[in-house]
Design a protein around this nucleic acid. Structure first.
Length: 574
DNA sequence: GCCGTTTTCGGCCCGACTGTTTTCAGTCG
């Protein structure tokens, strides 16, 4: 029996809620289970230990029934009530909930009436027109189910910022160009700078909402209209990305923007704070007895609740409300603070542009310094450099600085492979000739967490290693992180004075934003690096600043906000 | 299933939209 974890407890409660819903139980009962799952996930004591000790009695939302069930789960790793409920359905049944347009009720009806327990079975039933004949279903529903199944096979359910961000900017421009639009903004996870997005949300302030939803549905980018009403519209683009518009009055705008920016968890906390002040908050405004606060923008909403303004990136209910209450929110780093960057490639290894072209792009972007760090010899797949080529590149960079250094200073570095045992791909004699060194893992991903952590810490202990590149090796939407113990790495970084890179290539965003606050508090410095393989990728710095903000980082936590002179001093180079 | 200065029953968040209905249930956010 697998050991119970916080997440396994929560997942069982969520699954019970789902199955109760399928079977038509009291909706408030299912909500109680969902609510219980959320409490298990977010409670700030050791919930597993409390459950084992059967001491959950004092937590609001966990009653006698849930307490008993969590105790059984925590001590035995399973729950008879759950197994009984779950026993009726195969694993494939749960895939049905991934489909858009059908929820627990319809899934329940399909299972009860037609015995459908997988997407394949549902597809067949639709093709045989058996679904349209069911009560509560019809021709259109059947068609939508088939389209949803096809879409699931064709499209991703989340999108990279490289894809989504430019689209969002374009749609926002088009909304702002409409004469009836007073204010417009995107909301949702993009505004919060999540590392990937599931869909795009737009809010417009207007006196002609129906005109705007109509306009939105007819955008050139709109490939399909999902819903179209007088105040909201959803479209799907050709690449499968869903975009939602809410059209509200100018007075409602700040409330709608705040509400649809989320996160859900942040909003729950904000609303409960409002209730304590005798105010009810929803996407349209405050309601309550007496005089209501005067609200013109989002800041006024937070102010009315006695809170400092919470930047969208921080709205994840990870301590920002408490900090806003205490006046202790950080002054976040911004994109304009960045003066240079490290970890960039050229055609010497696997980059697509020469040293000169990369330098030119950095100048155009307004950077004062640029770090080059091509791959080392143990990455032959990336055309990694042997020492002789590396040292020739160093000479070339020194020559550039002689002639162009007043405009852009280039730091000569290397992205050195951390070998399986934690030793480095170049010896100390070579490393000593560089201005700095990014050490990264590029192979042997399947080491145990313990071995991988030791491997990276050994590299950090080398005095020539300036920073650790893409700590976990994850490729978003494609490859999971390798196992590594973040706590131990952060402690080692603090102890050895090693920088942990914030790799802001949107396919990586590594280290994950959730760890930066802790790293910062332990005095760990970061460098926001685009890992650019093309001049245009230097622009990733903008995403990088957003992710840093999401990790609560301030200007002083980021090496590349420093002046050239300060960086030279830090690196000990002239 | 949870909760309570409305205290052991009765309420729990809700508005917009669609499709299947003929006044409303289900889905979504």
């Amino acid at each position: 029996m697998p050991e119970a974890t916080r997440e396994s407890l929560a997942a069982v409660l969520d699954e019970i809620a789902l199955l109760l819903e399928v079977e038509g139980a009291n909706p408030f009962k299912t909500r109680a289970y969902r609510n219980g799952a959320e409490i298990v996930r977010t409670h700030d004591e050791d919930i597993l230990a409390l459950a084992k000790a059967n001491e959950l009695g004092n937590i609001k939302g966990i009653g006698e029934a849930l307490q008993q069930k969590l105790h059984e789960l925590a001590t035995t790793g399973k729950l008879e009530f759950h197994e009984k409920l779950r026993g009726n359905y195969p694993d494939s049944f749960f895939d049905l909930f991934d489909l858009e347009g059908i929820g627990p009720k319809k899934v329940g009806a399909l299972h009860k009436e037609l015995g459908i327990d997988s997407i394949a079975a549902l597809k067949t039933a639709c093709e045989e027109n058996k679904v349209a004949a069911l009560s509560g279903f019809g021709k259109k529903t059947e068609q939508k189910i088939l389209e949803s199944i096809a879409r699931r096979e064709t499209f991703a359910d989340r999108f990279s910022l490289v894809v989504a961000a430019p689209i969002a900017e374009e749609i926002l421009d088009q909304l702002r160009a409409h004469p009836e639009v007073l204010r417009a903004q995107y909301a949702g996870s993009l505004r919060r700078s999540k590392e990937t997005v599931g869909d795009l949300d737009f809010i417009v302030a207007t006196n002609k909402p129906a005109e705007l939803t109509d306009y939105f549905s007819k955008l050139d980018l709109a490939h399909e209209i999902i819903v179209l009403g007088d105040t909201k519209c959803s479209i799907r683009l050709e690449n499968g990305l869903q975009c939602d518009l809410r059209a509200v009055s100018n007075a409602q705008f700040p409330f709608a923007l705040q509400y649809f920016t989320g996160s859900k968890e942040h909003n729950v906390a904000v609303r409960s704070r409002a209730l304590k002040k005798g105010l009810s908050l929803n996407e349209y405004g405050f309601t309550g007895k007496g005089e209501l606060p005067d609200v013109h923008d989002e800041r006024d909403i937070y102010k009315a609740l006695g809170l400092d303004y919470v930047e969208p990136e921080l709205r994840e209910n990870r301590g920002e409300i408490e900090a806003a209450d205490a006046g202790e929110l950080p002054q976040l780093v911004s994109w304009e603070n960045l003066r240079g960057t490290f970890h960039n490639h050229t055609t010497e290894s696997d980059g697509k542009a020469t040293l000169e072209e990369m330098a030119q792009a950095a100048i155009e972007l307004g950077l004062r310094y640029l770090g080059i760090a091509d791959h080392s010899k143990s990455s032959p797949q990336a055309n990694g450099l042997h020492p002789d080529r590396l040292l020739r590149q160093v000479d070339k960079i020194r020559a550039w600085n002689e002639s162009h250094g007043d405009e852009l200073h280039i730091f000569a570095g290397s992205e050195v492979d951390i070998l399986k045992d934690g030793s480095l791909d170049f010896n100390d004699e070579i490393l000593a000739q560089l201005d700095y060194c990014v050490a990264s893992v590029h192979n042997a991903f399947s080491l145990s967490e313990d071995d991988m952590t030791k491997r990276i810490i050994r590299a950090m202990e080398n005095e020539h290693v300036t920073m650790i590149g893409h700590l976990t090796g994850r490729i978003l939407l494609r490859r999971d992180a390798y196992a590594v113990n973040h706590d131990k790495i952060i402690d080692a970084a603090a102890r050895t004075g090693t920088i942990i890179e914030l790799n802001c290539n949107p396919k990586r965003f590594d280290m994950d934003w959730r760890w930066w606050h802790k790293a910062r508090d332990k005095g760990v410095l970061t460098s926001i690096n685009p890992d650019a393989h093309h001049p245009s990728q230097l622009q990733f710095l903008r995403f990088g600043a957003n992710i840093a903000r999401k990790g609560w980082l301030r200007k002083q936590d980021v090496l590349n906000t420093r002046t050239l002179e300060e960086v030279k001093e830090y690196l000990g180079v002239s």
